[in-house]
């Protein structure tokens, strides 16, 4: 006997819930510009989209694989400057520049990751921080190439066959399309064997190795992948603002990216979007508190880590699921 259509629909939704969520979010995002017409607000959403691409990668590395990086603003900066340099001098058009930059950053991340990822905890934190500091200082000091503190301007926008993404609205669709691709990639990766391996090594490297996870190789691979995410976000940043300077790529920006990961929740893909949104919008909506801003950032980070060490979204979600499960168990107890 075939089950009735309502049951089959329920099964379908249950089985495809991840994919359906992505489609639902895609539709909602496509409709956003109907509600948000103000270019300033669209601009904020675009900025959130750019950071979301970088933080998705960083969350894979920090939240999912349990490693520490305080240097991803360095990769972000290299992506931005790579695209800027390649296109401003007319060597390449924007898309090939983006791809070449991402490939170069991947190679760099590989060479950086091979020796660095043998390290644990604070050593890894400091090695990545050191890398970021070097990148930032070179961007400031190497005047002849990077334009020094004043940066590079006149970067052309991205385009496809004569259609350029040069307005807030057009770029909105481009960047959020990119975010959805990134989200899908992360969700699929997490449910693959490689993703399960990463989650295992985050818990216990020795146990993961005994179960056949090639710990070192997987760590380097996820590091390179997260660096590529950051580099692509950097390229988008350069082509969106048409201008780059070293300010946005210092070690403090790396700390901001980490705060976004922690607010979103360690290892939570959807939480990442929320974390980026909260941290990016906070300064705009609490402008009157500007003087207290560092303080608020620090307090947010410290309080979340104290009370929900898994991060805000993941922590609250786990808490909710636990409460529901308890209630279900209690309900069953009464029924029997």
């Amino acid at each position: 006997m075939r089950p009735d259509p309502a049951t089959r629909l329920r099964w379908f939704i249950l089985r495809h819930r991840t994919g359906l969520t992505v489609w639902l979010v895609a539709v909602l995002l496509a409709l956003v510009p109907l509600a948000v017409r103000n270019p300033y607000q669209l601009g904020l959403l675009n900025l959130i989209g750019i950071y979301a691409v970088a933080v998705l990668g960083l969350n894979l590395f920090i939240g999912y694989a349990g490693q520490i990086s305080l240097g991803h603003a360095g990769f972000f900066g290299l992506g931005a400057y790579g695209s800027a340099l390649l296109t401003v001098h007319g060597w390449l058009t924007p898309w090939p520049a983006l791809l070449l930059t991402a490939a170069l950053v991947a190679v760099l991340a590989l060479f950086l990751g091979l020796p660095t990822l043998r390290l644990h905890g604070h050593y890894l934190a400091m090695a990545t921080l050191g890398f970021n500091y070097i990148v930032h200082l070179v961007l400031v000091q190497w005047d002849a190439v990077t334009g020094g503190p004043s940066g590079i301007s006149g970067i052309p926008p991205l385009g496809v066959a004569g259609f350029t993404f040069d307005t807030e609205l057009r770029f909105f669709y481009l960047v959020w399309g990119g975010v959805l691709l990134g989200v899908t990639a992360c969700l699929n990766l997490m449910r693959s064997g490689v993703g399960r391996g990463l989650a295992a090594l985050a818990q216990d490297e020795v146990a993961a190795a005994t179960l056949g996870v090639h710990v070192r190789r997987e760590k380097v691979r996820v590091f390179v992948l997260s660096a590529v995410f950051a580099a692509v976000a950097g390229s988008l940043y350069a082509h969106y603002y048409h201008y780059v300077n070293p300010d946005g790529f210092s070690i403090f920006k790396s700390l901001d990216l980490v705060i976004m990961v922690v607010v979103g929740g360690l290892g939570s893909v959807w939480g990442t979007l929320l974390g980026v949104m909260v941290v990016t919008l906070l300064p705009y909506y609490l402008e009157f508190l500007e003087a207290y801003f560092d303080l608020i950032h620090g307090l947010v980070l410290v309080l979340i880590l104290m009370f929900l060490p898994q991060g805000l979204v993941t922590g609250l979600w786990d808490h909710l699921r636990l409460t529901w499960a308890r209630r279900r168990v209690a309900g069953r107890g009464e029924a029997s």
């Binding site: 305080l70 700390l255 980490v258 922690v262 207290y292 801003f293 560092d294 303080l295 608020i296 950032h297 620090g298 307090l299 947010v300 980070l301 410290v302 880590l305 104290m306």
Partner: peptide, 12 residues
């Protein structure tokens, strides 16, 4: 991350 947060608070 906790000591990083505390460091941001002290700087603030």
């Amino acid at each position: 991350f906790l000591t990083i947060g505390l460091s941001i608070i002290l700087r603030g």
